[in-house]
């Protein structure tokens, strides 16, 4: 794990501002994690009340995006950050975008949960539970890696997305098979498909977070690579 120091500026206020955007991003990360968890729960527990609350709470996630973006903008305008500081501010401003999109996916899942709760057929819970667990795990690991600026963990997490993509493909094929066998279930399966699609997207956004962590700490850009196999 490499060292990254964000303290000790001559202007102490600058330390505090950088610390603030990190703390806010972590808070937003925690919030989004909870949203994702609740949205998955609302499907597998058939709990439309929980789904409603996820949809309601998404507004707060959006507000946090604006708040953090503004804090980043202020730092750039006032401090003209350079080197690690600059990379951190850029990273936070991008990460906020990814977290907000994960929040949106959670909201979409919650909307599907409400539709699904009106149906009797239990098909799809296994798929959602399985991919949901993987999506929560990659998000959790990415946020942990960010909190510690741990590039090794970020790279491990980055590679986790590949498995999610494979699981998504598998779930997709199963769904198609199921629809062909039982055309009456098509509408339900399509709802489930939207959910697993959202979970797959969560994996992509978490992967982006990992790329940004590596960028902050090492200054190397690992975007647009399927797997990162060089551990320097």
């Amino acid at each position: 794990m490499e060292d990254i120091a964000l303290e000790n500026h001559i202007v102490k206020q600058f330390d505090e501002e950088l610390d603030e955007i990190r703390t806010l991003l972590m808070a937003m990360g925690g919030m989004v994690e909870q949203q994702l968890q609740d949205s998955i729960q609302s499907i597998v527990k058939v709990d439309s009340g929980l789904a409603d609350s996820v949809i309601e709470r998404d507004k707060r996630v959006d507000e946090m995006e604006l708040e953090i973006d503004e804090a980043c903008l202020t730092i750039i305008a006032r401090r003209q950050p350079a080197a690690t500081d600059l990379r951190l501010v850029m990273m936070v401003s991008k990460a906020v975008n990814d977290l907000e999109r994960i929040g949106d996916e959670a909201k979409k899942i919650a909307k599907q949960a409400i539709l699904l709760s009106e149906q009797e057929n239990p098909w799809g819970f296994t798929e959602v539970r399985h991919l949901g667990k993987a999506a929560l795990s990659i998000l959790n690991n990415a946020l942990d890696a960010f909190a510690r600026f741990d590039t090794e963990a970020a790279l491990r997490t980055f590679n986790q997305d590949q498995q999610i993509d494979l699981d998504y493909q598998t779930a997709l094929r199963e769904s198609v098979t199921y629809m062909m066998e039982d055309p009456k279930s098509i509408s339900r399966v399509i709802n489930i498909l939207w959910v697993i699609r959202s979970l797959e997207r969560v994996g992509d956004h978490a992967k982006n977070l990992c790329e940004q962590i590596v960028f902050v700490v090492r200054g190397t850009d690992i975007r647009h690579q399927a797997v990162f196999d060089d551990t320097h």
Partner: peptide, 19 residues
């Protein structure tokens, strides 16, 4: 488990490695 994790995360933020 998620709650515990976010606690350790904020603790890490507070300590801040001095270099």
């Amino acid at each position: 488990a998620a709650e515990t994790d976010s606690n350790t995360r904020s603790q890490h933020l507070m300590s801040g490695d001095q270099t």
